[in-house]
């Protein structure tokens, strides 16, 4: 809706409430210096979308060979999560000392190849993230809004961290192999 400044000034609460409830309040000003009032929720959604466009789908090339993420570390996200994860692992493998901006060591090649082998056999693909602890995290969320992370490192066990929608948390260890992880993931989605 379009609201003049004088009207807005006289009924500030009314228009703030409308914006809070989801309306977009446009306030025209001279020389096209218009402003728009929206709720914080809507603003955050817009920021999130903007971030996704800026960061989420494309990794750009680094500018210097001294950079902790070298210039060949680029990939484009695809709709196929398995393919995407394989590309992400290639990027993880290119990390050099200090890749997180705070002296993290490069990820162990053996961990990366172990994760690659596990991912090939995963029926439900996770989103994967590197950790400065030298491990790789698989992350899942289900329709109940529970969260599950599975942390895989050099050891034979993987640590499972679950946060249920009600805030309750559990941590457990499972074998760090594709069969055990597949089974645990299936249970999470049941």
């Amino acid at each position: 809706m379009i609201v003049k400044q004088a009207e807005l000034r006289s009924n500030l609460k009314k228009y703030f409430d409308l914006a809070y409830d989801g309306d977009t309040v446009i306030v025209p000003r001279r020389e096209n210096k218009n402003v728009i009032i929206i709720s914080e929720r809507e603003y955050n959604d817009l920021k999130r979308e903007s971030r996704m466009m800026a960061y989420g789908s494309r990794l750009t090339s680094a500018s210097s060979t001294e950079d902790p993420v070298p210039s060949n570390a680029s990939y484009t996200a695809t709709t196929d999560l398995r393919t995407d994860n394989m590309h992400r692992l290639d990027v993880f493998a290119s990390f050099k000392q200090g890749w997180n901006g705070n002296s993290a060591a490069p990820l162990d090649r053996k961990v990366i190849e172990k994760v690659r082998e596990i991912l090939i056999h995963q029926e439900i693909q996770p989103e994967i993230f590197p950790s400065a602890t030298g491990t790789i995290e698989f992350e899942y969320s289900n329709s109940r809004r529970d969260f599950m992370g599975i942390e895989i490192g050099a050891g034979t066990k993987a640590e499972v961290f679950i946060v249920f929608y009600n805030g309750h948390e559990i941590t457990e260890n499972i074998d760090a192999d594709s069969t055990s992880i597949n089974e645990r993931v299936k249970r999470f989605y049941e």
Binding site: Y55, G56, L59, V69, E127, F129, P130, E139
Partner: peptide, 16 residues
Amino acid sequence: PPEVAALYWKRDGSLS
């Protein structure tokens, strides 16, 4: 750096 920052975004727009 930016390349790593991008890696921490989840598909729903939240941060890992």
